[in-house]
């Protein structure tokens, strides 16, 4: 006799209800514009991209548990910064902070700095505030809040994962050199933005 599990029962129930839902005039256009707007926000500037990839790369250098805890810390603190930006709480030196994040994290990768985990989390957390604030302050008024927030957070997370993925190359000597060179390039991008900001 086949066994019907409660999870199976629940899945069938929810599937049936989903299939039988009423026909609506779809408004996906609005949701998609919010999602794509949020998704493209973190990748709209090289300084943001460089810093977020650097978080994953540095985590890979630091090893466990930083490799996954830094990408957990960053979105949480970044969201706090976004909230400050959305509400309009004034914080000075945002552009400088963002550029500095690329310089500091890129240099840490280049020099293979092995900071204690708590210090790495604090450094990443402080920079996350600047990144989040910049995005929050530029948040479009008409964006679908949920779609925008989901796109924004997913893009940030994917950039971290890209950094972690690149960081796995450090197990090979040539890969280690390549990752350190990437760190140097990130630091240079940061210097360029820092020069512009100052």
């Amino acid at each position: 006799m086949p066994t019907r599990t409660p999870a199976f029962f629940s899945a069938v129930l929810i599937s049936a209800l989903l299939i039988s839902s009423s026909a609506f005039a779809h408004t996906d256009g609005v949701a998609q514009s919010g999602f794509w707007s949020g998704l493209s926000h973190p990748i709209s500037g090289w300084d943001h991209v460089a810093a977020m990839v650097a978080v994953g790369l540095w985590g890979a250098f630091l090893g466990q548990p930083a490799i996954w805890l830094l990408p957990v810390v960053f979105p949480m603190v970044m969201a706090l910064g976004s909230a400050f930006g959305v509400i309009g709480i004034p914080i000075g030196g945002i552009e400088i902070g963002i550029a500095l994040s690329a310089v500091v994290l890129g240099t840490a990768i280049l020099l293979q700095l092995r900071a204690p985990f708590w210090l790495a989390a604090i450094i990443v957390g402080i920079f996350a505030i600047f990144h989040g604030y910049a995005h929050g302050a530029e948040l479009p008024e008409a964006a679908n809040p949920l779609a925008f927030a989901v796109g924004f957070v997913v893009a940030t997370g994917l950039l971290h994962l890209a950094g972690i993925g690149l960081g796995t190359f450090i197990r090979w000597p040539a890969g280690r050199v390549g990752v350190r060179a990437t760190g140097g390039a990130i630091a240079l991008i940061g210097v360029a933005y820092l020069t512009g900001a100052i």
Binding site: P71, A79, G88
Partner: peptide
Amino acid sequence: ERIIASWSLAIATIMLAMTAR
């Protein structure tokens, strides 16, 4: 699970800020 939780927290915080705005 912890990464998904941190993303959910971030989404909820951003939406809260938008509500406050």
